[in-house]
Design a protein around this nucleic acid. Structure first.
Lengths: 187, 187, 187, 187
DNA sequence: GATGAATGAGGTTTCATTCAT
DNA sequence: AATGAATGAAACCTCATTCAT
C-alpha cells in the first residue's frame, strides 16, 4: 500500500497534530500510532522531533521565501505593496495548518532553531510594505495588515459566513490598511 | 517563616516564566527553584500546575470582565465602541505579561480549562464593536482592531521607537478601524 | 458543636475509609477533609498514621482479648468451644468495619506493628477450638469455622436474604464444623 | 540484548513482590531494580502498574475461567459439584501466589478494574455449587467450602504438618461441606 | 525501510510528617 | 486544641532518543 511516501505521511500527520494540540503536547508516540508505525520509524526519516518542524517549514514555507525574493526586486510602489499582500495571502491559504501552528505556538517556535528565521521573515515582510520614514501610526497600520491576515485564521473559525467571502474580506482590509498608510506618507 | 506572600510570589514567577518560555517548557521545578522553595510548597498553594494559570487569569483577567459588564449597559454608539477599545487597551497594558502569554500560547491555552472562557470573552468583545448587519469587510475591520492591539505586543518588541508613542499609535489605529466600520454601516 | 470528641471522630472516619478503600489508598488529607479539620489536627491526636490503626485495634479489638482471657480459664469441652464461637461472633458483629478492614487488608496489616498481634490472636483462638492430637482434617474444620465467620463479612454483601438470618446461619455452620471435629476426635 | 523473556520476568517478580508486601507497598522502582532494568522498561511492556496485575490475572486466572466454562455444561449433580471443587483446588495450587495476593489484598483488588471480574467469578462459582432453593445454612456451607480453600493459603503457613497432607485435608473438608449441603436439600 | 527493546532524564503529583504560632 | 506553611521522599508515568537486528 505505502511505498516511498512515509516521509510525507509523517509530515502530514505531524502538522495536523501540531496545529491541533500544539507542539509540546504532541508526542512522537502519538504521531507514530496514528500512522501505525513505530517511533523508531520516525527516526529513520527525521533526526529529531524538531527536525520534523524544520522540514515542514522548509517545504511549506518556501513560497514566502520566494515572495520575499520577488519583492526585493520590485520598486516600492503602492502596486507592489498590494501585490505582496495578495501573494502572501495565497501563500497563507496554501499552507493554513502550518501558519496556524506558527501563530498559535509562538512561544514554542521562538525556542526552536527556526524561530529566528520565522521572525526575520516577518520583519522583512513588514519592512517591505512600510515606507522608510513613515509615521508610527502608519507603521502600525502595515504591521496590522499582516496580523489581520493571521487573525483571519482565527476569524475563519468564529465568524459565520461563506469561506470564500471571509478570505476575500480579510485580504481587502489588509490591502486597505497598507493603502491608507501609503497615501498618508506619499500625500 | 515567610509571611503570607508566597502565593503571590509563585504567581509572579510563574507568569514571568510562562510568558518567557511557554507553559509546557516551564517546569514546576524551575518555578520552585527560583523561589527557593520545594515543589511541594507550590502544591500547598495550588492544586495543579493548571491551577496556577487559572489563578493568574482570574486575578489579572478581571478588568476585561469588568469591561464587558460595563459595555453591556452602554448604547451601541460609536463613542461606546471607541471607549471599549480605550478601556481594553488599558486592561491589556495593565497585564502585559499575561496577555503576551495568552497570545503566544494559544494552542496550549485552548487545551486548558480557561481556554473556552478566553475565547468566549474575545468573541463577546468582538460582537460588541460590530454592527449586527455589518458587511463582511467591516466585520473583519472590527476583529482586526482587536488583533491589532494584540499585535502591539509583538510590535513593541520589533519596531523601534518610544514605548509611549507605539502604544498610542496602536490604540489610534484600532480606533480608526472601528470608526471606519461604524461609518460605513451607519452612512 | 464538637468538644472533646475529635479523637473519636477521627477514629470513626478513618475506620470507615480504611474499610472502604483500604489503608494505603486512604490518605490523611482525605480523613482530615471529611472531618473539616487540617491534617495537622490529626497529628495532635495521633503520632502517626499507623497510630490510628493501633488505636482502633486497642479499642475495638479488646473484646477478642477478653474472650481469649475467658477461654483460657475454661475446660476444653465441646460446650466451651461452642461458646467461644458464639462470643467471637458477638465480638465480630460488634466491630464489623474493623474486622472487614483486617480481613481485606491482610497484606497491609502484616507489615504494621499490630500484624504480629493479630496473627497471634487468631492462632491462639484456632488452638483453643482444636484438640491437641486431632487429625489434619479436623484441624482444617476448626480453622475453617473461624474463616467461615470472616467469610460471613463477604457473604453479607453477595447473598440475598435477611441480615439476621444470614448471621445466624454463619454461626450455625461454624458451630457445626467444630462440633463435627470434636465428635470425631472424642468418639 | 536480552531475549524476549523480559515481560515474563516482570510478571514473575511483580507477583512475588505483590504477594509478599502488598500491591501498594510495592513500587515499580523496586520491581525494576530487582530485574536490573529501568522503570521505563516496565512501561515498554505494560501500560500501567495496574496493567501488570491485569496481565497476571489474565494469564494465571485462565484455569478458573475454563473451569467455569466446563462446569456450565455439566448437570448439577453432587458428582459435578465435587469435581468443581477438585478442579478449583488444582487451579488454586497452580497459581498460589496469585491467589494469595488476591486474598490478602481484597481492598486493593476491589478498586482495580479486575475487581469486578474477580468478584463475579467467585459469585458464579458459589452459585454453581449451591442448589437453587437451598436453606440459608446450606448456602453458607457452600460459600464456606470455597473460603476453606482460600483459608488453606493461610493454613499452609500457620499449621505444621506435611504440605501434601494439608492440601488433601483442605480439599476433603470443602468437599464434605458441599456434600452435606447437597444431601440436606436432596434428602 | 523499519522494528523491538530499552534508557536516562525529567515531568507532575501525592504523601506522611513537622513545627512555629 | 488546632492551624498554616512547608518539606523530603518517593510515587507513577511520559518523553525523546538510541541501536542492534
Amino acid at each position: 500500500m505505502s511505498r516511498g511516501n512515509t516521509r510525507q505521511r509523517i509530515q502530514d500527520v505531524a502538522l495536523e497534530l501540531f496545529a491541533e494540540q500544539g507542539y509540546e503536547k504532541t508526542s512522537l508516540r502519538e504521531i507514530a500510532e496514528r500512522l501505525d508505525v513505530t517511533k523508531a520509524a520516525l527516526y529513520y526519516h527525521f533526526k529529531t522531533k524538531e527536525d520534523i518542524v524544520i522540514s515542514l517549514f522548509a517545504d511549506l514555507g518556501r513560497p514566502v521565501d520566494e515572495l520575499i525574493a520577488w519583492a526585493e526586486e520590485q520598486p516600492r510602489t503602492l502596486a507592489t505593496k498590494q501585490e505582496i499582500l495578495r501573494r502572501y495571502h495565497v501563500a497563507l491559504m496554501g499552507a493554513l495548518p502550518l501558519f496556524r501552528f506558527m501563530h498559535e505556538n509562538q512561544a514554542t517556535v521562538r525556542e526552536l532553531s527556526i524561530g529566528e528565521t520565522f521572525k526575520a521573515r516577518m520583519t522583512t515582510l513588514a519592512g517591505m510594505i512600510q515606507d522608510p520614514g513613515a509615521s508610527m501610526v502608519d507603521r502600525v497600520r502595515c504591521v496590522s495588515a499582516l496580523f489581520t491576515m493571521h487573525a483571519g485564521l482565527w476569524l475563519m473559525q468564529t465568524v459565520e459566513g461563506e469561506e470564500a467571502e471571509k478570505r476575500q474580506a480579510v485580504l481587502d482590509v489588509a490591502i486597505d490598511l497598507v493603502t491608507q498608510a501609503h497615501r498618508a506618507e506619499a500625500g
